[in-house]
Design a protein around this nucleic acid. Structure first.
Lengths: 204, 204
DNA sequence: TAGTTTTTTGTATGTGCGTTCAGTTTTTTC
DNA sequence: GAAAAAACTGAACGCACATACAAAAAACTA
């Protein structure tokens, strides 16, 4: 039991180290430049170690993406928990999608590469679907009973695509700050709603 | 002279054939699955031909991207020429960014891959900059003398990122029609402007 | 400490790729 | 129609890569 506990501990540690090394390599060299050799080197280990803790290169990549997505989702979730009004929840959702310190060109580019790769990789595609479904359901929790279905679809699409678009722009190195992007998306949300609808969101 | 003229003609033809073959391979197999062998096969030629007409694989890719960008820019330009009011020009710019028959998942994915690759490829990055600069200047021609600089920056960013975001969503296979996306972006433009500003755009 | 298991190493292997180039076919020239 | 130039072929080369694996090192056990 001590044995198993220890083995598990070191296994998780190594896996995490490799994932983080993969992340750094990804950021520096892009999806194409991410080789097993570089990952192991970055992690300070030898070339063969990757096969020992992972099924293969693809497996590390997938674990990396999943970890990143989890972090982003948790950021949103913790913000949501603190909000008291519907409008506050909307602010939390949007701000949570531009986390301080993570809204950076290399991270944005990593995410973009995954989006592009989703076309030919079903595991990535599945991850993306989960991610978007979560965003959609979060937004639905804000607008439920305030907007009719058609309006909601329009507003949700507008806000969602703006968030995506801003990440895409950030990936190209455009200088954008989290507070500015959040404000921009919120200003669009404000503009798309009637005064009555806004009042309803700020009340509940 | 006849000689040179003929040689040029066939050279251009082969180059174009290879570029188009590259395009089809790109769409089907993604950036990573685009090999010289596949491209030549798709073009119905032998493996070595690529080096004869291009400097290398990278060269074909670049030519392909440049061609695609040119098509998109020309679509916008022709629409702009027909518009009579500022608002009409805005409609032309937005609609021109969702060309009928080109706003498809595989094409969107190709564009996305290029965006992602821009991070490590300076030639792509340059192309992207030209593309965005063109969009920006087109939008500026619509809003000049109507919006103050700060407002213009906000509106242009909002519309630009929405266009990008919608292409990104299309890349993931989301069902979006050109007329609907155009309408959505226009509705955001409408919402972001005051009535007075809108009137000004529709008049001139 | 001797034995046993876990962890790590570094080389070896096979594969797929881009590119080259000597040779072949086709086209053009005179 | 012979000579020359252009267009094209496809096998061959070298390289980078992912993965496998036997051997070594380290950690643990009793």
């Amino acid at each position: 039991m001590t044995k198993i506990a220890f083995r598990t501990r070191i296994e998780d540690l190594r896996r995490r180290e490799l994932i983080e090394a993969a992340h750094r390599v990804f950021m520096q060299h892009g999806l194409g430049g991410m080789t097993t050799k570089r990952i192991c080197e970055e992690a300070g280990m030898s070339a063969g170690i990757l096969s020992y803790y992972f099924k293969g290169k693809e497996d590390v990549l997938f674990a990396m993406v999943r970890l990143n997505n989890r972090v982003l989702m948790e950021t949103v979730a913790s913000g949501l928990a603190q909000a008291t009004t519907r409008w506050g929840r909307l602010e939390a959702i949007i701000a949570g999608n531009f986390p301080e310190g993570l809204f950076e060109p290399n991270i944005a580019n990593a995410w973009l590469s995954v989006c592009a790769a989703s076309a030919t990789n079903t595991r990535y595609a599945r991850l993306q679907r989960i991610f978007y479904a979560r965003l959609q359901s979060n937004l639905a929790s804000v607008f439920r009973d305030v907007l009719p279905d058609a309006r909601f679809a329009q507003v949700a699409l507008a806000l969602g695509t703006m968030i995506d678009g801003l990440w895409l722009r950030r990936a190209t190195g455009e200088v954008l700050l989290p507070q500015n992007t959040t404000a921009l998306v919120l200003s669009v949300a404000t503009a798309l709603l009637t005064e009555a609808e806004r009042a309803q969101l700020q009340a509940a």
